[in-house]
Design a protein around this nucleic acid. Structure first.
Length: 293
DNA sequence: AAGTATGACAACCGCGTTTAT
DNA sequence: CATAAACGCGGTTGTCATACT
């Protein structure tokens, strides 16, 4: 039953890679391409676990890696994406060409966290550290926060169960009593609406940063669930899975974006300030920053 | 100059999901 | 269908470099 073992644990090297190992791996992949990590080490003449080879290639040897310092634009983009995606580093990395999830994760932990703390922002929640007195860019409208789902918030301990291909992020309206929780599904549709916030995640503030990026959201009423799409309009941003790069194997549901998001050669999408046609029941997203959806 | 603290990043570990048998 | 391993991801650790005392 089952597959054969991935590698012979007894004969595998660990620790830092040597130049020779790097060369062997690079040469092998250049000739044969990526994939089949299980058989790669043996085929390439490496005494490494396939898992280790994959990691080395992805995080260090891949030719398309950018390396070097992160630009301020990348900083802000990471912060913004983290607001939506939480610690989903692979998904964040997918929006930053040439950067790896590991690199972004390290950079987040060593630089950006500190940066946010100095701004008075809790990096895990993107909320002010001290109940709102921090320098927060306030939205002109009632706060309509975007937060990571509760199961991807700050806890660093045990792994959480993954979430059945939905709930990439949750949106909370802040309309007093009837705080709605909306789960965005694979196709970008609103799947459910919950009337109170007893789940433990209470949202008081919009995720405020970076200062030049305003994030502003409002939600469709329950009646529009199932087929609400998060439109792109006039250069705006659709926050469906397609736009955010949240694709999975079985995500064939079409997004009903009115137009595809394009980002011609790094030109940032500019400010989005025009609401979608349905008025106050619309998901709005103001991004004056460096989004490249 | 030596010792210590801190930062940066590569690599490992363990878990959940997917997939081959 | 059940099982077990591959795969992929996120969290954590180890190690080296640099700054500070």
């Amino acid at each position: 039953m089952g597959r054969s073992p991935c590698c012979e644990k007894d004969h595998t090297n660990k620790g830092a890679w040597s130049k020779e190992e790097d060369d062997r791996l690079t040469n092998y992949i250049n000739i044969h391409g990526e994939g089949c990590w299980r058989s790669l080490p043996k085929a390439a003449g490496l005494l490494r676990c396939g898992k280790s080879c994959r990691l080395r290639w992805i995080n260090y040897l891949r030719p398309d890696l950018k390396r070097g310092n992160f630009t301020p634009q990348e900083d802000e983009l990471i912060i913004s994406l983290h607001t939506f995606l939480g610690n989903k580093w692979s998904q964040i990395a997918a929006r930053l060409p040439g950067r790896t999830d590991n690199e972004i994760k390290n950079y987040w932990n060593t630089h950006i966290k500190r940066k946010l703390f100095t701004r008075g922002i809790d990096p895990s929640t993107h909320k002010p550290l001290n109940g709102g007195s921090a320098a927060v860019v306030a939205s002109s409208q009632p706060e309509l926060p975007v937060v990571p789902t509760s199961n991807e918030s700050s806890s660093s301990s045990s792994k959480k169960k993954k979430n059945n291909n939905k709930s990439e992020f949750e949106l909370f309206s802040n309309n007093n009593m009837n705080r709605e929780k909306v789960v965005v599904t694979d196709s970008g549709c609103v799947e459910e609406s919950v009337s109170n916030s007893s789940s433990g995640v209470t949202i008081e503030e919009i995720a405020p940063y970076p200062p030049h990026i305003n994030l502003e959201l409002s939600l469709a009423p329950p009646s529009q669930q199932q087929q609400i799409s998060l439109y792109s309009w006039q250069g705006g941003v659709c926050l469906c899975r397609h736009a955010l790069g949240l694709h999975g194997n079985n995500h064939q549901l079409p997004c009903s974006c009115k137009k595809p998001i394009t980002h011609p050669h790094g030109t940032p999408s500019a400010t989005i300030q025009q609401p979608a046609p349905t008025g106050n029941d619309v998901f709005k997203f103001f991004g004056a920053g460096n989004f490249k959806f």
